[in-house]
């Protein structure tokens, strides 16, 4: 009789601790998954010993520049080589097609309205200038001319962003 009953006993695994653990792990991963990292493209940054540790301030625009010059902001491509100028003309180099018009437009319409503006007493004649930086993250092998072009776009008369930060990897001593 006792033998028989043992055979009939259904083995019930107690799932409760496992589910508890799994929930805890899910919550851990949700918290650790830093959403602010979403703006950073995967790039190999050059190493700099003096790089200041970067605590990203809210709302600072980040421009990712890939090796071929493609410019990405918040997963949105603002420029790639031979971007369609769509009839726009470069305001600084008169007569040339403006391949960077979309970048300029993004800066003007999506960044400028949210930037704090101040008047520099030394350059009072220039009026109010945006006083917030733009972070440029480029691959270590990105030709400088692409970054230089971004800077030129920043300095266009209708934008006038003058603070830039260049991203670099912190030297970990390896």
């Amino acid at each position: 009789m006792s033998k028989r009953s043992k055979i009939d006993t259904e083995t019930q695994i107690d799932m409760t601790p496992m589910i508890d653990m799994v929930f805890l792990m899910i919550i851990f991963f949700i918290i650790v998954n830093d959403l602010s990292q979403q703006e950073l493209e995967e790039l190999k940054l050059p190493v700099a010993i003096t790089a200041v540790h970067d605590d990203p301030p809210d709302g600072r625009p980040i421009l990712n520049v890939l090796e071929d010059g493609t410019i990405i902001w918040k997963k949105k491509t603002l420029f790639y080589p031979n971007y369609d100028p769509a009839g726009y003309v470069d305001p600084i180099r008169k007569g040339r097609p403006d391949h960077w018009w979309f970048l300029a437009q993004t800066m003007r319409d999506s960044w400028l309205p949210f930037m704090e503006k101040t008047v520099d007493p030394d350059y009072a004649s220039l009026g109010e200038l945006p006083d917030e930086p733009v972070l440029i993250r480029a691959d270590r092998n990105t030709p400088w001319k692409h970054i230089s072009k971004i800077m030129e776009v920043c300095s266009r008369p209708d934008i006038k962003i003058w603070k830039v930060q260049l991203a670099a990897a912190e030297d970990t001593g390896s």
Binding site: A51, V52, H53, Q165, A167, T172
Partner: peptide, 9 residues
């Protein structure tokens, strides 16, 4: 870990 270098135009 990322760092930055400040500059101006």
């Amino acid at each position: 870990l990322e760092g930055r270098l400040d500059a101006a135009l």
